[in-house]
């Protein structure tokens, strides 16, 4: 089976500024990859290219199968009820029952007929995840989906995402700048810096992972991001 994401020598420049400078990346079916990097390292640009929102590129970017996405902001349509936000664009006759099932999965069974503006940040983000999942994606793009949530909600969301991923098995590319999040969730961590992948870490720890189990690898990943934990502590 072909890899759902395949990038070869991907380059992207905005005028004279090179944002992505020769990216080679293969993501296997069902693989969970985290992309780490500082602000402005090019991770959002990479994600937009994979989502098909930016097609003016050099090199090769192949994404096969259904692609779905959840953003840092939930980006729900405030004027459509929750279930319609999930079902719209699906082009399936039983949209409502599909949406209801997905809401069960993200543990919001009673919110189908709510207006999105009445949801909390965490609830809205769960609707956004449900919306992404009902598309049965081969590739699920997650653009810092927990970045705007409070710490407690974020922990719950980590479990939920891991759960959903285990059940649906899409290939996931999670863009984040949270090292712990990447270590808890990903099979593989890529460190992006100035448009290049400067380090790759395979995380072979058993799931579900606990914070303590990732501490050792955390130091090494942080070092690749230019953060020296030993002296910082």
């Amino acid at each position: 089976m072909a890899n759902p994401v395949s990038l070869r020598g991907l380059r992207k420049a905005f005028g004279a500024r090179t944002v992505l400078d020769g990216i080679d990346l293969e993501i296997a079916p069902g693989e969970f990859v985290a992309l780490l990097g500082r602000s402005g390292c090019g991770k959002s640009t990479l994600l937009r290219i994979l989502a098909g929102l930016d097609r003016e590129i050099d090199g090769e970017a192949r994404v096969s199968g259904a692609v779905s996405i959840a953003f840092q902001q939930p980006r729900l349509l405030p004027w459509r009820k929750v279930w319609r936000n999930i079902a719209l664009g699906l082009h399936k006759p039983d949209g409502r029952s599909i949406a209801l099932k997905a809401l069960q999965e993200v543990r919001l069974p009673d919110h189908a007929d709510a207006w999105p503006l009445t949801l909390s940040g965490g609830e809205a983000q769960r609707v956004s995840l449900a919306r992404a999942l009902v598309r049965e994606p081969d590739v699920l793009l997650l653009d810092e989906p927990f970045g705007a949530l409070d710490a407690l909600t974020r922990l719950a969301m980590h479990h939920l995402v891991e759960d959903l991923w285990a059940r649906h098995r899409p290939a996931v590319l999670l863009v984040t700048h949270d090292v712990d999040e990447a270590l808890l969730l990903a099979d593989r961590i890529l460190v992006l810096d100035e448009g290049r992948i400067v380090a790759t870490h395979h995380v072979d720890l058993p799931r579900p992972r606990r914070r303590a189990s990732v501490v050792e690898q955390r130091t090494r990943v942080l070092a690749d991001l230019g953060v020296d934990v030993e002296t910082a502590a």
Partner: peptide, 27 residues
């Protein structure tokens, strides 16, 4: 219209008509 909503609709598979009817006009 919030371009973020239009982008989301594009990735989520809305047709052009659906983007106009459900995203652009309501906003």
């Amino acid at each position: 219209t919030d371009p973020g909503l239009v982008e989301a609709a594009k990735v989520l598979g809305y047709s052009r008509i659906e983007r106009i009817v459900h995203v652009v006009l309501p906003s």
